[in-house]
Design a protein around this nucleic acid. Structure first.
Lengths: 223, 223
DNA sequence: ATTATAAGCGAACAGTAGTTCGATTGTCAA
DNA sequence: TTGACAATCGAACTACTGTTCGCTTATAAT
């Protein structure tokens, strides 16, 4: 199950060297010496660094000037930083229903207040029709067991049924609260399974739980 | 006298040196030595070149690292990192560096492959310059108690320092791996604290860990 | 002319840096 | 086990490189 990543033929040490050289150049404006590289990656012998630098040359990642101090240059690009702004796609506006609070149902009727919408890229929805999607902000830590914490924004697809294993927002009619859980229908009853291994599931009958939607994405901002 | 003033109050010799240094770096990827400069501009004495280089430092054209071979950098080159372009409703493409796996460094490779980038709306970054941001996919559950789970996509801001408690991606130079942990600097050593109750913290010295960036956002897709 | 200051010169010095080489270790296939 | 080969290590060697210092030259104000 190797994901076959870049750096195919490079050893870990060679990757470390390449990483450090790039970082060093970016920071200092000139390449490091063999000994500077060695001390940083934890290799005492200059010959080992030299050996691996030559490997990097063979692999085409760098070039070296013989007998020249700091005679390393990156083949790809001298300034490592690239600009990352790129072509714009069409964003989609997702209705934002505000906060989901325990004890209150999610309003089902749509409202179209423009600033009550959040904008996402279509690929965030994984091909789902944007009109079926709405967003909630999680308030409180009542759903922390589903690895969803206070302030998280969840994108949900509107649906009233769910398949086993789906993460859904469920309105528990008898308890009078809404919760986010994994949904399992088994033996005529519903098991709402927290994502956290140490938490116990909740068992309810199908007629006392009303599915509001299925979670398709979670967005969290840290500061 | 002078038809124009290419560089404000620089002597002809200093201009020649500056010109040559720029040219040399552009050609070779690393700065010239004092003697290389001297031979090019026709000065035999290293001290003369050294003298004029210091003048260029005073004038603000270059920076030097003491006692470092080729320790010259052009001042204009360094601030290449700060670009602040605020695209209004445009999406930004964030370089996607793949998975963060124990034992494999974050590739520093260029990301020319279009699907090696993820697109987000600028407000996802909370006002942070998009060019400072990159994305990783988390592998493993070592951060499960920080509510970061396998498969999550984390957006990180490139920075080399961190405050205690920050969630950072750290490159462990001697181990040759990158890891996602909470950062604490205490008693002159660095504690990298996993947010998983059964996992022990990692202790390293500050010079063997390079902070890659700080987590600013987490995106999780459920399918 | 005198003086101060900037600029230049050449040589010597000490530490730095790339290279080389013999020896060792680890891996993998025969 | 054996052999081939890649990777590593430590040390020594030579050449390189920045720094320093005493001395000289040039310029301009006094």
């Amino acid at each position: 199950m190797s994901p076959k990543k870049p750096y195919n033929k490079l050893s870990k040490r060679q990757q470390a060297i390449l990483q450090y050289v790039k970082q060093f150049i970016d920071k200092n404006g000139y390449p490091p010496t063999i000994r500077e590289i060695g001390s940083q990656i934890g290799v005492a012998s200059t010959s080992v660094v030299n050996y691996n630098l030559n490997k990097l040359v063979e692999a085409g990642y760098i070039e070296r000037s013989d007998r020249v101090s700091r005679g390393i240059r990156l083949v790809a690009d001298i300034p490592a930083r690239k600009k990352s702004v790129k072509a714009a796609q069409q964003n989609v506006a997702i209705p934002y229903y505000g906060r989901i609070v325990a004890g209150e149902p999610i309003p089902v009727e749509a409202f179209d207040d423009p600033d009550k919408a959040i904008e996402v890229t279509p690929d965030m929805l994984g091909g789902i029709d944007p009109s079926e999607v709405f967003a909630l902000e999680v308030q409180g830590n009542s759903m922390i067991d589903a690895m969803i914490s206070d302030g998280d924004i969840v994108l949900l697809r509107r649906q009233e049924t769910a398949r086993n294993g789906d993460m859904v927002a469920v309105w528990l009619t008898t308890r009078g609260e809404t919760t986010l859980k994994r949904f399992y229908l088994e033996n005529g009853r519903v098991r709402l399974q927290p994502a956290h291994p140490t938490m116990e599931p909740i068992f309810v009958s199908p007629d006392e739980c009303q599915i509001q939607g299925k979670i398709i994405s979670i967005i969290r901002h840290l500061h």
